[in-house]
Nucleic acid binder design. Sequence first.
DNA 1: GATATGTCGCTTTTT
DNA 2: GCGACATATC
Length: 819
Amino acid sequence: MSFELRYRVFMNSFDEDDAFEAAARPSLSQLAMQGAMRNAMPENKGEYLEGLNAEQREAVLALEGPVLMLAGAGTGKTKALTSRIAHLLHSATARPNEILAVTFTNKAAREMKERVARMMGHSVEGMPWLGTFHSICVKQLRRHAELVGLKSNFTILDTDDQLRLLKQLIALHGIDEKRWPARLLAGIIDGWKNKAYTPDRVPAADHAAYNGQGVALYRAYQERLKTLNAADFGDLLLHMVSIFQNHPDLLASYQRWFRYILVDEYQDTNVAQYLWLRLLASEHKNICCVGDDDQSIYGWRGAEVGNILRFEKDFSNAKIIRLEQNYRSTGHILAAANGVISGNTERLGKQLRAVKEDGEKLRLVGHWDGEVEARWIGEEIEAMASGVRSRLRQYSLEDMAILVRASHQMRAFEDRFLTIGLNYRVIGGPRFYERKEIRDAMAYFRVICQPEDDLAFERIVNTPKRGVGDKAIKDIQVIARRDRISLLAAAQLAIDEGALKGKAKSGISKLLTDFERWRDLNFRHQNTNGAQSEGLIEDGASDPAEINHIALAEMVLDESGYAAMWKNDKSPDAPGRLENLKELVKALEQFDHLAGFLEHVALIMENESAADEAKVTIMTLHAAKGLEFPVVFLPGWEEGLFPSQRSLDEAGTKGLEEERRLAYVGITRAEEICTISFAANRRVYGQWQSQLASRFIDELPADHVNVEAMTGLNVAQPASSPSFADRVSSADAYDSPGWRRMKARSQHSNIGSAAKMVINAKATAVFDVSDRVFHQKFGYGEVVLVEGDKLTIEFDHSGTKKLVSSFVRCADDAGDVPF
DNA sequence: GATATGTCGCTTTTT
DNA sequence: GCGACATATC
């Protein structure tokens, strides 16, 4: 059996327990579940209805027909949504696999699964169609890939691959990439895909895009993706919409199947997602969409708030239910949020009512520069964690979050927290799977799983160095294009034809035999592990050469010389990279085979670090949507940064309104204490710039805000009405209570560190001046000064830093990594 | 072909 | 102020 063929057998078996066919013969787990449901019924009948308010209850009980739930921040929409699912299942109105429940993020999907499980009192393994738009579309597309010219083992490209591919095509078309950046084209194509335009459906008005060649390049790009057997993110939706539009019979079977549809964060759907939903819902019309127009913050990504507005038009007799009781935030916080959002004109209109007491007013703090801001917030967090700051209660670090507009703002906080030894976690920062070493390793796995993946092959063909230079790669590309074959196949042909010589020849030839061996091992493993069903395993089960994917991954990294490359690398971050590779291999344990892992990584780009100790969370406002924290810090409220200049330039008033919604989202994340701050000076592109306080600060209703400390600032021109800008400039900043408190604190700056030092003591080694040390982020360096547990270190490549000693270790230990 | 140096442009936001 | 890309030099 050829590899191709065997692979396909595997992929089919992969789908074995897939939801759809399971219809006719319910799987064991489903049977078990239904049994459990019936058994559970007498005791917890209607339990999930308790604790719902009238509107929530209405939303849960209205199972038949279209429902639009307009749910403001903190009004318990997830509760309503999950209760609705529980109700569907519990009342035996629908079987678990007949419910399509879509979210945007993996986090939301996971939470929904967990909450439904909790309500039902058992797991919801039987809900195969609860997931993100993307994961559900992948599932469908793997099954019908051939209808759009793909094979079911297609690769999902991320933005990086997408960009590299576009660059190649742009060069091929003789366009100057400097003048017409690939990023621009990527954005245009993404935009089209979000609107569900295939190349021949791009409207004439858009034909001038990208120097008039946008459509041609889009077409070429799609062709290229097909030959690479790959799909980008936009394709997942686009392909499914095309398939449904072109194959009515197939669509009909899905329409019949999904008797109940639920959609979370409906305001964030783009046109493609909307079409996909509408196609699927048009049979039973039992669709329940939940959304909040005030929290629509993904317009830049093609989200159409219009989808929410036209719901009634699309689905006649739609029931509209408003959730306006806010259970999350105190009165002052809610009032401030309401005040800010009222500045927007395009709203459906909704007034959140607080259930909680007024609580503390928002705090507004101005700082001299970004570093002072980071320092102040760090101290504030320490004080709250030690119970000094708050008269309400002591907070855990887990209760606190810093929400920023743009990810580069995170660095100031990271630097500061590293220095004072404050535990933090960054969500959505530089991602694990975007690191070079991880992407390289993944490229090896990709070529193993999908030999047509030229992008991956190109990435690693000379990494580590195999003596394959530009010339050799060009030659291989020429052959590949001539014979319309993959680079991998072309490389083999090049050797057979004698087109390669010397180092290039021997290097590639070794790589090719390696890949052949690895792929064979991988196939055997997948075939035994992925195919539980009959007759598929012809060989392998008892084969002594059998090897699992984890051992295979180690073998690949080892035999390819990739691990050795970093081991021999003397640069400061090499040890860290080896650590990351080790982590990557460890991550494989949660999967059955490499292919499953690759898909997971493509769809779920988050890296979950073990939540062992309490940590402050740092993340973007976008990432914070749907979350809540007792204590929230909102730094960097400055013109140009927030609202972002770019957003204003690109989308004008629309952009400003979206930024304002972002401010609204930020404030409404807070349950008890919300602190907004800004700095008068900030480094932008490494250059100091003086900043103006954000216009959103002027829009905060003064009755609900305390101005805490203003430390000598340049402030925006006074606005027409008396505003904070005025109060800031007129305040005697240097005599304010806040200033005095700050000064007092800076003299003995470690209010909250007693407990922390106990924690740190356990792991802290003792360092002396001139010790060589290693730091995960800054690399190698030498200790030049020791003050208690604080070290001043001159790093070889990262300059001089002052850090708490528990964050560094002896340079000698650092090399102690596997491979 | 592999390294060392220089230049430019850039930062929103993410499945 | 950093990293991606290009050019220069071995």
